[in-house]
Every structure is written in structure tokens, then in C-alpha cells.
Write a protein that binds this DNA or RNA. Structure first.
Length: 423
RNA sequence: GGAGAGGUGGCCGAGUGGUCUAAGGCGCACGCCUGGAAAGUGUGUAUGCUCCAAAAGGGUAUCGAGGGUUCGAAUCCCUCUCUCUCCGCCA
């Protein structure tokens, strides 16, 4: 959520920045400011009423103790009037406040000045590209066929017991999953992150805090009976650890890492994009989350990008990094890098990580703040990124490393898998 | 799932209708004391919204959350939620 102060002080600037995300904010901003005026005026009147009532109540108390019951009745008439007025003003103020908030949460975050305008994924900038795209043998096949050939991931068994998008990992496939999770966690810990194991279900307030609610509730699995949501990413619980928290400046930076299964309904997805491991309803991911001092968040974003690059290099996967254009960025992000690996048999790039700085957008919703050295309370910056999501890494690894003998496991993973070859 | 007891400031804890503007303690910060420290001692120590150009300061709200009763609620009533104890079930 954008900070109200900013909108009050410089609505034109806000409008211009949101334009980069192709968001026409003019009318909403105007309404927000109108409601703000109403809310504040009403608030002032209300506070005056409350103050008067409070004083009269004290007087009544004093009079009763002095035994002057007749005077009390006169005062009670006045408080009866005030009570009606208070109710009216309170309703009006709350209404203005609610409406204002409803409008505020419709505004996306604004992009960093370096973010280029653009409408679709076509307009994203490639900022880094590394690794050699392997030339595969003529009989090379996509990963879903390899999964079947080596019997390591069983999609049909998943269909049977749950439904599509819920594969069953088996034998060397299961061990590869476990190896990747441990590898990613260990690398994160080496880079200074603290490991967490969060709950996989969260409440409504958490969904709201990171921005999944109210807009994207259709993308989360929902447990009606207990009013809980299955997490689409560990970002949700791990960032919400700090909801309604005021940190000390000395607590910073906070660097957390968490493995979790992730659950996404992916309503509306279809076609060859969702084949095999490309898009699943349940998948595994290791997520990194940072809570940063506002002046250090941009350096932190680069550090996180470097961390992901390091992982991809170690896994020997050809990759490229995109800086998303305004139109392709998520609602809450100020800047996002997408990391994609090349899937040689499908001959396409697969997104395996997305690293973003949200600046104060999430922390404003969550009331995540810190007290600076002068005692002033300010919003913090939040960042997160995948490091990494498993399915597409596995897809690319299987396809790119396929040989006559089997699938080669990168050296760095072998201590984790306990084997060099899937065969 | 059943029964009972609870939720008060950073923490502990008093407070059962009227200066609660929340006692007291611990912690923390700053000062005094000291050669330095400890001890002692003094002062301060929440957050939101709002008024004010800003600072200083003021108003108002907040005692798990939301409603209600009352001139007046931390205190009484209702609903929800969380924690603890016992029973039941159970990895």
C-alpha cells in the first residue's frame, strides 16, 4: 500500500510514477484526497465531542460525590445530545476511512526510476546472460518423457490420488528433490540467512499483509472450515513474522530463508505451458526474505540477485536475467529481476526465480517499522526472491543433461544426491 | 471434541463502575554519585489518528478483537479469538 503522506504531498508525482505501470491513477487519487479531507474534518469534530463528553462525565462524578443529584440531570441532557452527535460523526469518519482504504489498496506500488515502461513480457530488458546452451542429440526428449523413462516423477499417479499438477516423485527423483532443497538451504545459510520452517497455512491477516488478499484470493487454496489459506510461497508466513512489529535499527538487516511446499490454484492456466513440471499446483521452493533499512534495500536487491546467480552457476545451467518492465511487474513490486534457465529440449526459457524489492509497499500494509537513532518511527523495506523454485530447475537439468547413459547430476549436487547419474 | 481458568505497557504484575491521566517491580536510556565500575540515587521510557508551516505542545483512541449496558467501562453483559490446566482422540 502506498503511503498516504506521499499522495497528499505530491499526487502528480504519484500519478506519473504509476503511469510507468500503465496504471491510470488520476481519478482514484482525487477521490482519495477528497475522502482524506472529509475524514480529517470529521475526525476533528468527533474528537471535540468526545472531549466534551469526557469532561461532563467527570463533572457528574464529582457532583454525585457531593450529593448534588439535581445538577446531574441537566448535564445528562447534554451528554445525551453529544452521544447522538458522536455516533453520527463516528459513522461518517469510519465510512470515509474505509472508502479511502479501499481505494488505497487498489494502487500498485510505484516502480524504481530505472524500470522501463512497457506493456508485456516482450518489453523486459535482458540485463545478464550466461552459460552455454547445450546442443542436444537428435533423439533428445522433453523432461516429461525423461521422467517416465527413468520412472522418477509420476504425473499420472498424482492425477489418480489428487489431480493434475500434483506429481509424485519417486526413487532418484525424490532424492533429487531432497538434494536440491538441502543444497539451496545450505547455500543460503552460508550467505548469512537464518533458516525457518514456517506453517504452510496462514490466516487472512497474513494474506493481506503480503498482498495476496484481497485481490488474488482466487489463486490460493482456501480452507473454509477454519478460514485458512494454503501458502502460495513461504514469503507469506516469513514476511508476516514481522507484521505489527517495530524493530530496533540494530536488528537490521534481517535475512531469512525458508523451504516450503507452495500451493497455487493457477486458475485459468492451460496448454503446453503447463505440461510436465512447467506449472504445478503444488511445488517446492526455497525462499529468501530480507527486511532492510530503507537506504540499503537497493544494495540488498543486488546482493540477492548475486546469490541466485551463484546458485545457477553452481548448477551449471544456462540462464538469463530480465529486469521486468513496468507493465510486467507485479502489483506490489518496485523492481523485479526474473531469472530464467534455458530448457534445451523444450527450447524455451523457464522462470525459476523472481527477486523483488517492495520498498515500503508491504511494510505499510503490515505496519512493519523501525525506530531510528533519533527515536522516530519509519517504515522498513521488504525484499524477497526464490532461491530457488525446484520444478523448472529439475526440468532444465533433466533436459540439458540427458545423455545416452542417463542424466548427469552437477558435481555440486552429488554430495547431496549420493549419485552422479540418473539411470 | 468436552470442562474449567485466563489474556493489562518491552517483560512481570496490581487493579471488580468515577482524578486509571493504569500502582509496584524488572528491563532499557540519560543524569548524579565514583579514579573507573558496581551498588545507590534521580528523571524519562507505548502506538495509531489528528491539530500546528515545523519543533515544542495539544486533542482523541487503544488494557486480546468486535459489539452492548451506562452520564461514565481495564472493571458489567454478549460474540469471536488465542493461551494454559484436566479429560477424550492422536503422529
Amino acid at each position: 500500500m502506498l503511503e498516504l503522506n506521499l499522495i497528499r504531498e505530491n499526487p502528480e508525482f504519484v500519478k506519473e510514477r504509476l503511469g510507468i505501470k500503465n496504471f491510470e491513477a488520476g481519478i482514484i487519487l482525487q477521490h482519495i484526497l477528497e475522502l482524506d479531507k472529509i475524514r480529517r474534518d470529521t475526525k476533528n469534530k468527533l474528537d471535540q465531542c468526545l472531549a466534551e463528553s469526557k469532561n461532563i462525565s467527570k463533572e457528574i462524578g464529582a457532583l454525585l460525590q457531593a450529593g448534588k443529584t439535581l445538577d446531574v440531570n441537566v448535564l445528562k441532557e447534554r451528554t445525551a445530545e453529544l452521544k447522538v452527535l458522536t455516533k453520527t460523526l463516528d459513522d461518517a469518519m469510519r465510512q470515509a476511512e474505509t472508502q479511502q482504504n479501499q481505494l488505497l489498496i487498489q494502487l500498485p506500488n510505484f516502480p524504481h526510476p530505472s524500470v522501463k515502461p512497457g506493456k508485456t513480457a516482450e518489453d523486459n530488458e535482458i540485463v545478464q546472460s550466461e552459460g552455454v546452451i547445450p546442443v542436444l542429440a537428435e533423439n533428445a526428449v522433453p523432461h516429461w518423457e525423461l521422467c517416465q523413462r527413468y520412472n522418477i516423477i509420476d504425473f499420472e499417479l498424482g492425477n489418480k490420488i489428487t489431480g493434475s499438477g500434483f506429481p509424485v516423485y519417486r526413487g532418484q527423483g525424490a532424492r533429487l528433490q531432497r538434494a536440491l532443497i538441502n543444497f539451496f538451504l545450505d547455500e543460503g545459510i552460508k550467505a548469512g540467512y537464518l533458516e525457518y520452517q514456517p506453517p504452510l497455512l496462514v490466516n487472512e491477516a497474513s494474506g493481506y499483509g503480503t498482498g495476496q488478499l484481497p485481490d488474488k484470493d482466487g489463486q490460493m487454496y482456501y480452507i473454509n472450515e477454519d478460514n485458512l489459506y494454503l501458502i502460495p510461497t513461504a514469503e507469506v508466513p516469513v514476511t508476516n513474522f514481522y507484521r505489527d512489529v517495530i524493530l530496533k535499527e540494530s536488528d537490521l538487516p534481517i535475512k531469512n530463508i525458508a523451504y516450503s511446499s507452495c500451493f497455487r490454484r493457477e486458475a485459468g492456466s492451460y496448454g503446453k505451458d503447463v505440461r510436465g513440471l512447467n506449472r504445478l499446483h503444488q511445488f517446492d521452493k526455497v525462499e529468501i526474505v530480507q527486511i532492510q533499512h530503507p537506504e540499503k534495500s537497493w544494495a540488498a536487491l543486488e546482493e540477492m540477485r548475486e546469490h541466485v546467480v551463484d546458485l545457477l552457476q553452481k548448477l551449471e545451467l544456462p540462464f538469463r536475467i530480465l529486469r521486468l518492465c513496468g507493465g510486467d511487474m507485479s502489483f506490489a513490486s518496485a523492481m523485479t529481476y526474473d531469472m530464467e534457465v534455458y530448457s534445451a529440449a523444450q527450447q524455451r526459457w523457464l522462470e525459476v526465480s523472481s527477486v523483488s524489492n517492495f520498498e515500503t509497499f508491504q511494510s505499510n500494509r503490515m505496519k512493519l517499522r523501525y525506530k531510528d537513532t533519533t527515536g522516530k518511527i519509519r517504515l522498513l523495506h521488504t525484499l524477497n526472491g526464490s532461491a530457488l523454485a525446484l520444478p523448472r530447475i529439475v526440468a532444465a537439468m533433466l533436459e540439458n543433461n540427458q545423455t545416452e547413459k542417463g542424466i548427469l547430476i552437477p558435481a555440486v549436487l552429488q554430495p547431496y544426491t549420493g549419485f552422479e547419474l540418473i539411470s
